[in-house]
Design a protein around this nucleic acid. Structure first.
Lengths: 225, 225
DNA sequence: CTATGTATTAAGACTGCGTTAACCATTTCT
DNA sequence: AGAAATGGTTAACGCAGTCTTAATACATAG
């Protein structure tokens, strides 16, 4: 998870030091700037994944900086989090909906900050993945039409096979236990044996390729590339 | 993202209508209450994800309501946002740190409100995620995917090894006695010898590195860096 | 030095999965 | 309707990987 670049912008050196220390401890690559102007310069070169921006700064405030960053072609999609003092007048901040991705309130609690930063970056990662996976593993389903697309080829699966695939595909990578699979695909009242699932998994493997369906012994199955 | 439940509490029907309309338009399920007492009643039944609470209300004000909500076992972790009039005396609000998760100032601007609400709920979602993943210094586990990440490398551990690691990692540094480990990983009714634990610890050491797993003689094991 | 607790192996037991084939159930075709 | 095809479920058996044990070697505290 380490290695993400974060740009930290605040006019108080103390805040920079505190936050910087904590972020580095977590393995992040940290850049700092004391004002909006240098922030933009640094951002252009470092291309950070996340910019944490103090709202209240002399000269160019956080919102103004944010707006300029959004103008920049290479930075328009960078995550931006605002640092605001609790009780600050939100109306003007949010009213200027410059597209901040999160708000972090001072006083800063390191552990809170870290978890928020991680949450934001997770979002970034999953967005990236989402864009890729659709085309990467070449398998997608169309629940409306009850059709599976593999490398552009349409494929008609029987009901149970389709629903099982749909379940696994709904959260690629996540392991679904037999219990969950049964209640989700077969329903809570229906009683069928565990081998039934195996057989359907086998059929999916036959039709879509062995490599996608991974067994986690003692736990369940997952869809993975 | 739709489907989140929001409880809106304000003594002015106009405000309820305005905000309610806007939230519903975004696909949220909205409940309303005109005072603190009914707010608690509704909250108990609906279990909302977020409660927006006017600070200034007759009888029971927002802070008092908030405090009572926090007492309630099923609602103690619900997100709470305070509605405050601009220029209101923040000191008494913040001083009474009842654990509000955000402050929204009146007059309410719909677009602002929506973006704040969405930001809050996003936080909720990622906090839920946090519970499922634990990480420490290059080693992290993903319970959903049943995968261990070491320096970015994916690692598949067998069930017991994974669960043992998950336990130790759940409170890094804390020593887990053999007794606790057995009841947690193996269950209370299963009877296995103590050496079994050693062997699993050994395998974890092999796969993840000796240094992480510290033996505390006569007590148990702990995960440490 | 001894007692106690832990580390390390290797071997065997065990569990749970994969696979096939046969058997119903349901739908479709003639 | 009867036949045929398709889909769903189960049972049986083999197999691989996982778990546990037991035996022995090692470490540390007293």
């Amino acid at each position: 998870m380490g290695g993400n670049k974060i740009l930290l912008v605040d006019d108080e050196q103390d805040i920079l030091d505190l936050v910087s220390y904590n972020l580095k401890k977590e393995g992040f690559e940290v850049y700092t700037a004391l004002n909006g102007r240098t922030a933009i310069e640094v951002a252009e070169k470092a291309l950070p994944d996340l910019i944490i921006l103090d709202v209240m700064m002399p000269e160019m405030d956080g919102m103004e900086t944010c707006a300029q960053l959004r103008e920049h072609p290479n930075l328009s999609k960078t995550l931006i989090a605002f640092l605001t003092a609790r009780g600050e007048d939100y109306s003007q901040i949010a009213g200027f909906d410059a597209g901040a991705d999160d708000y972090i309130t001072k006083p800063i609690k390191p552990r809170v900050l870290i978890s928020r930063v991680k949450a934001l970056l997770r979002r970034l990662e999953s967005d990236k993945l989402d864009a890729k996976t659709a085309s990467l593993h070449g398998i997608s389903i169309d629940k409306d039409r009850y059709v599976v697309l593999k490398d552009g080829e349409e494929l008609n699966l029987p009901k149970k096979e389709f629903e099982l695939l749909a379940l696994l595909l709904s959260q690629p990578g996540r392991v679904y236990t037999r219990e969950v699979i049964l209640s989700s695909v077969w329903g809570n009242d229906v009683v069928v044996g565990d081998r039934t699932i195996d057989v359907h998994i086998r059929k999916l493997r036959e039709k879509l390729g062995d490599e996608y369906f991974k067994t986690v012994k003692g736990v369940g199955y997952k869809f993975e590339t």
